Simulated scan of single mutants.
Amino acid sequence: MLRYSTMETPAGPFTLVVAESGAVRASGFTTDVPGLIRLIHPSLRENTEPVDDVGAAQAAVRAYFDGDLTALDGIAVEQHTGGEFMAHAWLVMRDLKPGDPVTYSHYAELSGRPAAIRAAAAACARNAVALIVPCHRVLRTDGSLGGYRWGLPVKSWLLDHESAA
């Protein structure tokens, strides 16, 4: 059974979908739980139930917004794709530090495939665990924001929050 909870944050409503193990399978700046569930790989989907609090992941998100920018680092996530590069790229993404965003080309390089800029961008686009797997820390090659599933104002807010600390 997957549990989910939506909390208010300074960047907008944020929903976490968490497995019984405590691992986050999806998260995003939305109240659309069915839409968020669709981001989870079919092999990881289960029945869902709303709860007031999903535990450690929710506490870590609160701590992040309260200024502890490393609070999310220890939260387990479960994502799945058919590709080895994507899984590796998500692990690399978790190592991107707050306040130090990288470009898609640098992210591709960090992921071990410098020429795979589109694949690096796809890893960002297919990330179902926003904020915890910090795709918001990847920018266009010219330094502009690029895209973000949850909107550029949210991405901008997160980057400002991380650079102010």
Score class of each variant (00 low, 15 high):
Val92Trp: 05
Leu159Trp: 00
Asp52Val: 13
Ala125Leu: 02
Leu44Val: 13
Leu131Met: 02
Ala11Lys: 03
Ala71Ser: 12
Leu91Phe: 03
Gly22Ala: 12
Ala123Arg: 01
Ala125Arg: 07
Ala116Trp: 07
Leu110Tyr: 01
Asp73Cys: 12
Val133His: 08
Ser163Pro: 04
Ala23Thr: 10
Ala19Met: 10
Arg62Trp: 07
Ala119Asn: 12
Ile75Val: 15
Pro34Arg: 06
Asn47Phe: 02
Val33Pro: 12
Ala130Asp: 08
Thr103Tyr: 05
Arg25Val: 15
Gly55Ala: 05
Ala164Lys: 13
Asp142His: 11
Leu96Val: 11
Ser156His: 09
Ala165Phe: 08
Gly143Asp: 07
Gly83Leu: 10
His161Arg: 10
Gly67Ala: 08
Gly146Thr: 13
Leu2Thr: 03
Tyr107Lys: 02
Arg118Cys: 03
Ala108His: 10
Leu158Pro: 15
Gly82Arg: 10
Gly151Glu: 03
Val61Thr: 04
Pro10Asn: 13
Gly22Asp: 09
Thr30Trp: 01
Pro114Ser: 10
Val17Thr: 10
Gly112Gln: 04
Pro98Asp: 07
Asp142Gly: 15
Leu72Ser: 00
Arg140Glu: 14
Arg25Phe: 03
Ala108Ile: 11
Ala122Thr: 02
Gln79Val: 13
Ala19Ser: 14
Thr70Leu: 05
Val92Leu: 04
Leu72Ala: 06
Met93Asp: 06
Ala87Glu: 06
Glu162His: 11
Phe65Gly: 14
Ala121Leu: 00
Leu110Glu: 05
Gly67Asn: 10
Val17Ala: 11
Arg140Ile: 06
Phe85Val: 09
Thr103Gln: 03
Ala63His: 04
Asp66Thr: 13
Ala87Asn: 11
Ser111Gln: 08
Ser144Met: 04
Trp150Met: 07
Tyr4Gly: 14
Ile37Tyr: 00
Ala56Tyr: 07
Ala164Gly: 11
Ala56Asn: 11
Tyr148Cys: 13
Ala122Tyr: 00
Asn47Gly: 15
His88Cys: 03
Pro153Tyr: 06
Tyr64Glu: 05
Gly83Asn: 13
Val61Ser: 04
Ala63Trp: 00
Glu46Gly: 14
Leu69Thr: 14
Val154Arg: 04
Gly146Trp: 00
Val138Trp: 01
Pro34Cys: 05
Tyr64Ile: 10
Leu72Gly: 04
Ala23Glu: 01
Ala87Pro: 12
Leu2Asp: 02
Ala164Gln: 12
Ile117Thr: 14
Gly143Met: 00
His88Met: 05
Gly74His: 01
Glu78Gly: 07
Arg3Gln: 11
Arg25Cys: 15
Asp142Tyr: 10
Val154Gly: 07
Arg94Thr: 12
Ala130Gln: 04
His161Cys: 13
Pro114Met: 03
Arg62Gln: 07
Pro42Ser: 14
Gly151Val: 09
Pro101Ile: 00
Ala120Glu: 00
Thr81Arg: 12
His161Ser: 10
